[in-house]
């Protein structure tokens, strides 16, 4: 007799648990306000990334096209993947001494793992993270970027 009742109580509990499960999906079906999908290409204009978002490594330039990089190469040494190449140049300064400046700060985006060591260890805070995240390109060579803009120079007094 016990097994007889167990048979029916099993059915009852089973059906009950199934109905509870169906109530969850049914509730979400009738509550379209809870939709979490982001309409990505449409919301591109007002898509705000978080300020610390690591999109790509950039060299910070001010409005006068000045940066703070003196080409010391600490970022290159700290990079675990060799995605940074610093090509320094030597110029003769106003005081007549030869000094090192950055010629090209080459950044291989394709190799970067965004560990943040270059940005953290830069002694003059010349590097930062950009918010750009749409990095898809048709040619791999486009992933190699020169971070210091053409014609830019170092801020006086940083070196």
């Amino acid at each position: 007799m016990n097994s007889f009742f167990k048979y029916f109580s099993d059915i009852f509990h089973g059906v009950k648990s199934l109905l509870i499960g169906m109530s969850v999906t049914g509730r979400y079906f009738f509550s379209p306000g809870q939709i979490v999908t982001q309409q990505y290409p449409e919301n591109r204009k007002n898509l705000q990334m978080f300020e610390r978002f690591k999109g790509e490594v950039i060299m910070l330039h001010d409005e006068n096209n000045l940066h703070r990089c003196n080409g010391c190469g600490i970022c290159e040494n700290n990079c675990p993947n060799g995605s940074i190449e610093v090509i320094p140049a030597r110029i003769t300064g106003e005081d007549g001494k030869s000094k090192r400046i950055i010629d090209k700060h080459i950044y291989h985006l394709g190799m970067c793992t965004f560990c943040g060591l270059c940005v953290k260890n830069c002694p003059s805070n010349a590097l930062g993270f950009g918010q750009e995240f749409e990095h898809a390109v048709f040619d791999r060579s486009k992933l190699t970027k020169v971070l210091n803009k053409t014609g830019s120079s170092i801020i006086k007094g940083v070196e």
Partner: peptide, 10 residues
């Protein structure tokens, strides 16, 4: 569409 609405998608 139905399964999307059940899963909070569009």
């Amino acid at each position: 569409k139905v399964c999307a609405f059940m899963q909070n998608r569009v």
